[in-house]
Design a protein around this nucleic acid. Sequence first.
DNA 1: GTAGGGTTAG
Length: 626
Amino acid sequence: MNYAHYLFDEITLKNSFLWNSMIRGYACNGFSWKSLVLYREMLSFGHKADNFTYPFVLKACGDLLVDEIGKKVHCEVVVSGYESDIYVGNCLLSMYSRFGDMEIARKLFEKMLIRDLTSWNTIISGYVKNQDPIKAVNVFNLMVRVGIRLDCTTLLSVLPACAKLEALKLGKELHGFIFRSNIGCFDNFVTNSLIDMYFNCRFIVGARQLFEKMTRRDTVTWNSMIVGYARSGDASKSLRFFCRMILEGGNPDQVTFIGALGACDQISAFQFGTSIHSLLVRKGFIEHMIVGTKLVDMYAKCGSLDYSYHVFDEMPEKNLVCWSAMVGGFGLHGRGREALAVFSKMKENGIKPDEVTFTTVLSACSHAGLVDDGRRIFDQMVKEYDVTPTLEHYSCMVDLLGRAGYLDEAYEFIKAMKIKPSFDVWAALLSACRAQRNVKLAEVAARNVFTLNPRHIGSYVLLSNIYATEKKWGEVENVRFIARQMGLKKQPGCSFIELDKVVHRFLVGDKTHSQSKEIYAKLEEVRQLLKKAGYTPDTSSVYYDVQEDVKEDMLWDHSERLAIAFALISTGPGMVIRISKNLRVCGDCHMVIKLISNLTSREIIMRDAYRFHHFSNGFCSCGDYW
DNA sequence: GTAGGGTTAG
């Protein structure tokens, strides 16, 4: 562009063709401002803008998101009589959809005397980009009814809309259409989009079939598989595809690494995460901010705050999201003071926290029981930072107050909310009622919870456990009966442990592992050891009205114990044991793991559904507050 | 000489 501008300046008698070329050049090469400056200059030199000028000026306005200037140019378009030009008109649609103003875009679209394929495509993609997939599909249906032939671009907007709506039927119809009609798409775009759509609609088999049939897979194809499997909860498959991609000579990019790291944190695959880390360093992605942030997050979620902080510390540039990730990391591990310190340091560095940061900070306070700090920060958020509290903030506050013992204050807090309390808010109260053993308030919370989400099995389990703790067996059976009637099934406890980059999974009572015999033998050995050390089981975590010894047996096949027993027979003495589980740890397991850490001199790091526990020498980092 | 597109951190 520099040289073009130099030549342009040399020409004394410029015609509008030359002006247009320059404006287009700047607009299409990332210098939108210059293109607008040149447009003004062109007018001041007495040249008239025409149907070749406006498209690029409008594009520049759209790219810069300057809606006031954009509207002004629109006026000029109307005055000069070019609004009816199809190119100019389409660019207006595109500009307004970039501004997020689909109402104006739609009105213009309705008003157009001639609409071509691009007009339709622009409106459809506008709705998709502005989070309105329903309208996008409606316009698409209208387009088909009117008899407009769709093309690749149409599909690349409608398929993501199907994905968002989980509209599998329409998605499959489009797939069939693509298959039958020889629609000339020579790249992978449409197939990749289909794969993503199938994953989002949870039609994994369909996605897999498409992938296997492809002959020239590109980076996005692999990424869609890696991200798709991770998002559908099959992190192991996701990592297997990552390996396959590397082995088959795929070319990983930032998205690949971010996706694979996301799979690692789901199943606490710490060792796998470190290998991905070293690979991405070798490939030169460590300076990439999103990759760095994901590493900070992954290490924290895989139990290693040291690594997490190290990556964070080395990052050359940190934005709001990086800082928030680090705050969240400390919070997840119950290190509230450090979370607050990072939060302060972030502000000292001139970075203004947003609503997500505040959620993270409040959650950190909650995990660490920092009630006063939490109250103060919530107040500060509203008054100093002008952030309107969201449902997430309220949930955190209810959790913070409730679990710290201020149940009434938590309830008052809900009643004073300016927005309608969500399921999560009431669920936080219900959960706090269990910790505080308050049946009366629990019933209030439960009523609201069930109204807002009658199909959430966890809430039924929670309420029945609250009754069980108080030995109200009639009520326990009642709640369970309702859940059964609705066809809800309890989610089985499940723990993960990684050994030599292979993640092993244990369900409660699992006997399917190839070393199952040895695992149960080890478990029995530990059990005797603990008994000798004076351990008596805390059977209050068994929510069934059965004999004490049966209760004790029921505790001993909890999935985390199987995972730990497996670790004890498979790793050398002194090795750190890292496990993660899908539900929250029960009171007795928590105690048993503390004892195991002491008797076997092992550090055990466990992530449960809620937070991290670091066990060593008979103590847990959570200080029994969880 | 003209517009529209797939995967992506807290």
